[in-house]
Amino acid sequence: MTTHEQAFERAEPQAVERRGLHRPSLSGDWWRHLIALAACFIAVFPVLYVASAAFNADQSLGGTNLIPRSLSLENFRELLSPDPAKSQLQSSTSHYLRWLGNSLIVALTTSVLTVLLGALAAYAFSRFRFRGRRLGLLSLLLIQMFPQLLALVAIYLILLRTGDVFPFMGLDTRTGLILVYLGGVMGVNTWLLKGFFDTIPSELDESARVDGATPAQVFWGVVLPLALPILSVIGILSFVGTFNEYVLASALLQSNENFTLPLGLRGYIDKQYTEHWGPFAAGVLLAGVPIMVIFMSLQRFIVSGLTQGSVKG
């Protein structure tokens, strides 16, 4: 029990609060606000054009002015409750909510598994000394540098063959897509996690080991709980990454009901010259909401967790 408490104390980012205390904020912060506001402006500026397209019945993107010629919610209506008679796509249904559901399932599963598998590997790299360890770590990063664009055909074929044997995880299945995403688990994530694990004193492990715990028990019972901040950060990064992923999904998913959100929305703009930017932009805006909510609620973890402690490693 005591080991637990000690550990949690250590993991809390106390420095943050402490440092601020004896220098209360004064109007001397004006320059910080100025810079922050300018940066925020640049960050959000293009997004305003996406919003403008979403509320514009014109179907165009960017145009030359920000204020739409005709302000309307038509695009959102088309997206959410498509009326076959009025829909500009004429095909009967838009499956926005279904796509959203697919994206959430795929992204959540992937991010949870990414965290788990990444942590397992990082723990091995952090705690054990074995042959090929340094080479392994280095190759993890280098392998990720292969241009993904060109690996598509191979991935497609692998999944197709998998599907011959295990239909539930072949092409055009969410399971299959998740499996492919898991191929990218080892890499930067493992490095980040390993860096964090390095900062958790190995005395904690050792005392648990003396108490008779197996390495697995140490991992699940001691190390993982301590690493919660970094785990949630990696979870979020992986969530956002898979939620917006287009290239792999488009190569592997085939039927509309299995589409993830970016793939489904692409249907609105897939043809040269006849892009329906309106519903597309509306869809992107709506999809951004859950992402931003997750960001806001876990912000504390992000800033304190991303590289916390690995400095001291």
Binding site: V153, Y156, L157, D164, Q254, S255, G267, D270, K271
Partner: peptide
């Protein structure tokens, strides 16, 4: 099956007979 128009041509080159 619904596909991006441009992808129909490219996917036909890599598709396997079964699908």
């Amino acid at each position: 099956l619904e596909k991006d128009f441009g992808k129909i041509r490219d996917d036909l080159k890599t598709v396997q007979p079964e699908s």
